[in-house]
Design a binder for these strands. Structure first.
Lengths: 357, 357
DNA sequence: TTGTACGCGTTATCAA
DNA sequence: TTGATAACGCGTACAA
């Protein structure tokens, strides 16, 4: 009992050579091994509970079956888990496993992390950020590398990022399809600040805004029925924005015909704030005003009342797809260094309804 | 250029034997190696950028310098990242690295995950859940195992869990210290349901409630000045609870002397709901009513307006401490199979102020 | 003080 | 069809 059985032990138990064991267990027994030996090996392995030592296997095969995931801020994002989970899940499907390294947002530590992973003989690397980012620099490595939720401009590696524009278009179209004709977007301000959450929004903000304008214009809507109000990224920004857009200076709601019936928020926090602002004006959601958020932020969107209809950021899918691309490269396929856009699925909850009139 | 240099290459470059290289690099050169050779080795290693192959090292030393982290639900918790980050950070400090495995909440997959990690020769295991849980069963393994955010009753392994009772006491004392004398707790209902988030609350709910009662009683407060209202775990539960506790049947606020001046919520979502309810009654936070939450939920507590004063769940610290305990065991120390309570620090934001009168 | 040789557990080559 | 045996890269007992 006790110590892990080695291939030798299996061979001994089955009364065959280690070569036979290796052949059988690795499926290289095409015409080489007799059915009887095959059976004996399988049985012995099962009885002993034999599992090959992955370290030795990796050493010999020059392939560790480990992929390294280095990220800038596992800790400080409500989204962190999803990307990692997606990557881990996809990796596990191919008998790969994930080695995670957190650089705490310090680019200097990225290189160290990568070096450590190299020493561990990882077969490939995923570099992920927790907010969508355009990267200035990247750690250097001879290994296949895929970027998740970030990219370089111009592109130097394959990368997967959310289709912000597509999501924003869907947000607008959702409202349009429900019959809304007066729609305002509560947008984020232009780039500034250095907090991770803010930076994340900064990249997405202008993209989401442009797509919103395009979608409403394509539907034949024009100013002033459609407009964009720049507010901010936080809950109170959304609240103030809603107050300004839906109410007058005295804090009363505008007459129904004079205010938008639908609101597109640049993220879920702003949407939550807008719901608060609407309530303060005595307006009901979604009866008096419909609201669509963006991000499907965990612990927020689903817990609002009513639940917030929003566009989900495909974090899990990004992790999954990044590993996908990595495997493709590992299998020798040529993967172009391009940005792959992943759709942001609409999560329908309770904040969209047809306009009153 | 190209291929990773091996110890042999360093030896060749320095004009010495591999033994010398190994001795120098592992610090075993006490009196064995001449200062001159020592220098040559170090220089050659630096020039080649030599890093030992961890796979081979692990194979030889029978110690992989990897610790396995298996978790029930990386994906579906806003807290997931923090625990992993803490563990990864602590591990990295000792040149260890983290192998993460997600069982997706399926206990059947736990054993598979552990087996896979065993095959990878991990030196120890951390089993973490994303909501506080009492575990029925645990995967079996001969390796040192530490539990994070969960435990078995009676204890079978060392574990680290949040000090819910202590946190709840601090919540009450914070309000007491600010001068509040009429305090109501908005609590969660008794155990039921099977959603992870709910189950998490279930274990903590009664504990937090008991500690709240004890702390207020110790301060000399009695019913009806102090009471506990069972509402639920979600935002709208908190909203309804606040409406009932602070207002009358007609939806108007109770007179100042007839309502509590301080509210303790069983979690941040309920606290957020309570803030909403208070606003609906025309009550200002914290001027008219102070509120303390629990969890410091990412993406919620910090983004409310005003920011929610709350007790943080020590997720990062749990990850860190779990690895700490694991290292102690790895170093041969005897670690008792007991539950270690980690303090929930108070995060002071803007929802607590002295009562009006 | 330095170098040689062996073992960690696996896979793969090659001769039997 | 099978069975020795060499390698993967490193650490160390032991001989020089």
């Amino acid at each position: 009992m006790s110590a892990r059985p080695r291939a030798t032990d299996v061979a001994k138990a089955a009364g065959v050579s280690v070569t036979a064991v290796s052949f059988v267990l690795n499926g290289n027994d095409s015409g080489n091994i007799s059915a009887a030996t095959r059976e004996r090996v399988l049985q012995a392995a099962a009885e002993l509970g034999y599992r090959p030592n992955r370290l030795a296997q990796g050493l010999r095969r020059q392939r560790s079956h480990v992929i390294g995931l280095v990220t800038d801020a596992i800790a400080s994002s409500p989204f962190a888990g999803r990307l990692i989970a997606g990557a881990a899940d996809r990796a596990g499907g191919d008998d790969y496993v994930l080695l995670v390294h957190d650089s705490h947002g310090d680019p200097g530590r990225d290189q160290g992390a990568v070096d450590e992973l190299l020493a561990r003989q990882v077969d490939g690397l995923v570099f992920a950020t927790m907010g969508l980012r355009a990267l200035e620099t990247l750690p250097i490595t001879p290994l296949p590398l895929v970027l998740a939720n970030c990219y370089q401009d111009p592109d130097t590696h394959p990368s997967v990022v959310p289709d912000d524009a597509g999501g924003s278009r869907i947000a607008a179209e959702t409202l349009l399809a429900a019959g809304h004709r007066r729609i305002t977007m509560l947008g984020g301000p232009p780039p500034q600040g250095c907090d991770l959450g803010i930076r994340a929004g900064n990249v997405s903000g202008p993209v989401r805004e442009r797509a919103f304008r395009a979608a409403t214009r394509a539907a034949g809507l024009r100013s002033p029925d459609v407009s964009v109000r720049t507010v901010g990224w936080q809950i109170d920004d959304g609240c103030r924005g809603a107050l300004r857009v839906l109410g007058d200076a005295s804090g009363a709601a505008l007459p129904a015909a004079g205010r938008p019936t639908g609101l597109v928020a640049v993220n879920d926090r702003v949407a939550a704030g807008a719901m608060l602002g609407a309530a303060r004006l005595g307006l009901r959601v979604p009866e008096d005003v419909s609201i669509v958020g963006f991000d499907d932020q965990e612990g927020l969107a689903a817990f609002l009342v009513p639940g917030l209809t929003t566009l989900a950021l495909p974090h899990e899918e990004m992790g999954r797809r990044a590993v996908d691309l990595l495997f493709a490269r590992l299998h020798g396929e040529k993967v172009p260094a391009t940005r792959e856009l992943l759709p942001c699925p609409l999560v329908e909850r309770g904040t969209v309804a047809p306009p009153a009139d």
